[in-house]
Structures are given as structure tokens and as C-alpha cells.
């Protein structure tokens, strides 16, 4: 695909925007609609857009690590989050309220767990798209 400068700039901003919004979705998920899953999906859609626009390699580059590594790390994060209350209850939650002066911030292990979900979803969806796209590409080149 031939790249055009307007598309490039739009896409760059779109990717950044999607990243931020997805993270926002993740954070607010505990109190309002959203959460790790929709957050992760939204983040992955950034990868999808880039992949469709510039091909699988660009998508890979944007991810920096391989999708499977994301998956493994995300899974381990979730496991880690579930181990904080090891002695009393598996997956028991732990909450700390941080006072930042202007506002208070609730941080808890469920949030960490949700982060794990986010990372896994990001990895899985990108892996789906990248796999299919790269096969399509090799097929095309092969012809």
C-alpha cells in the first residue's frame, strides 16, 4: 500500500489516542463500563489498524515484543495478582487507598488482575490479526 502523509499522521494520532482511551477504559472499568477486556480490545484495534494499513511487519514493530510474550506476561501478571493474599485466600483482594492530595486513588489487586487481562487480550487479538495477515501476505507474494 502506498503511504500518504495525511494517512500517516492521522494514523499516528489515532494509535496514540486509542492507546490512551484503552488505558482509560481499563482504569475506570471497576466503577463504570469498561475493564480489562474492552480496554485490551481497543488497544489491539490500534495494532489492527496499523497492520491493515502498513502490513504485518509494521504491526509487529508497534508491538515491539512478540504477541505470545504479551500473552505469557499477562497470564503471569494475573496469577501474580491472585497471590497477594496467599496465606488467607487465593485470589483474595487487597486494596490500598493512596492520597494524592487533590484526589484519592484506589489501587487494588483486582486492578492488577485486570491489567493482566488487558495485556493478554492485546496479545491474543494482535496475534490473531498478525498471523492471518502475514499468511495472506506470503500467499500473495507467492503468486
Amino acid at each position: 500500500m502506498k503511504s500518504s502523509p495525511i494517512l500517516d499522521i492521522t494514523l499516528r494520532w489515532l494509535v496514540v489516542l486509542l492507546g490512551i482511551v484503552s488505558f482509560f477504559l481499563l482504569l475506570r472499568g471497576h466503577d463504570e463500563p469498561g475493564g480489562g477486556f474492552s480496554g485490551g480490545l481497543l488497544a489491539a484495534s490500534a495494532i489492527i489498524i496499523v497492520t491493515i494499513a502498513y502490513g504485518a511487519d509494521a504491526g509487529r514493530k508497534l508491538l515491539h515484543f512478540q504477541p505470545l510474550s504479551y500473552i505469557a506476561v499477562g497470564l503471569l501478571l494475573s496469577v501474580l495478582a491472585s497471590l497477594f493474599q496467599w496465606d488467607t485466600a487465593f485470589m483474595g483482594s487487597l486494596w490500598i487507598t493512596l492520597s494524592l492530595g487533590f484526589t484519592t486513588l484506589k489501587i487494588g489487586t483486582p486492578l492488577l488482575f485486570d491489567l493482566g487481562v488487558y495485556v493478554v487480550v492485546l496479545g491474543v487479538v494482535s496475534s490473531f490479526v498478525l498471523e492471518i495477515e502475514s499468511v495472506v501476505k506470503t500467499k500473495k507474494e507467492g503468486r
Binding site: F37, V124, F128, E131, I132, V135
Partner: peptide, 20 residues
């Protein structure tokens, strides 16, 4: 249902790959 949707997505992705 949310869980089911996600699992459904996984299964859908896999079956698509299988069809391919």
C-alpha cells in the same frame, strides 16, 4: 455472557484458522 463472548471470540478465531 461477557465471559461467554470472550470465549466465543477465541473459538471463532480458532475455527476460522482451522477453516483456512
Amino acid at each position: 455472557i461477557l465471559t461467554a463472548i470472550v470465549i466465543g471470540l477465541a473459538l471463532f478465531g480458532f475455527s476460522l484458522a482451522l477453516a483456512y
